[in-house]
């Protein structure tokens, strides 16, 4: 079937079987491999992406169901060569080690801060409680999100060095 959705601001269209999971559509069809997966049962949250601004588990959403919706992945976090404060925060506060859960964590953090710009620790922990990190023990993830809250986009601390490459948008296969 034909599937059309907006991914990181670009409209993409592709043929795919109805059973194709959104995570596979993003990774295998669009080549956006920043979205990872870690289980089959909606328990780990590695595959989190934003669907119409809301974090969802892309292993439990069919690409067909996402058709017509707006998807934002880790590749769409930085804008115009500027890192999202959440990305900067994860580097500043060592919010990642192996990096595998990181994209999902950062997207949930972005959605949280969009809703609540100054969350307390309990709110942050609750917001990421559907996502498992096996490396960090979460404390530094919490600190990273707090860092981002304290350095909102537009404040000078959130600016990144000039060498930060602009994120390309997805190539759409014919």
């Amino acid at each position: 079937m034909k599937i059309t959705m907006t991914v990181n601001g670009d409209s993409v269209t592709s043929e795919a079987e109805p059973r194709v999971l959104l995570v596979h559509f993003l990774r295998d069809v669009l080549g956006l491999t920043g979205t990872h997966w870690g289980c089959d049962t909606s328990n780990c949250g590695l595959c989190a992406v934003l669907m119409d601004g809301v974090p969802v588990k892309s292993c439990t959403v069919l690409a067909a169901m996402a058709s017509g919706h707006e998807i934002r992945t880790v590749e769409g976090l930085a804008t115009g060569g500027t890192l999202d404060p959440v990305q900067q925060g994860f580097m500043e506060e060592h919010g990642l080690q192996c990096g595998f859960c990181t994209p999902g964590m950062m997207l949930t953090a972005r959605a949280l801060l969009d809703k609540n710009p100054d969350p307390d620790e309990d709110t942050i922990r609750e917001a990421i409680s559907g996502q498992i990190c096996r490396c960090t023990g979460y404390a530094t993830i919490v600190r990273s999100i707090k860092w981002a809250a304290a350095h909102p986009a537009g404040s000078s601390q959130a600016e990144t060095p000039a060498e930060t490459p602009a994120e390309e948008t997805a190539e759409v296969p014919a």
Partner: peptide
């Protein structure tokens, strides 16, 4: 290693 990971540019096996 962080600049690539936070941009979703890590290169893992399934990539």
């Amino acid at each position: 290693e962080d600049p690539r990971f936070i941009r979703g540019k890590g290169h893992y096996l399934d990539d």
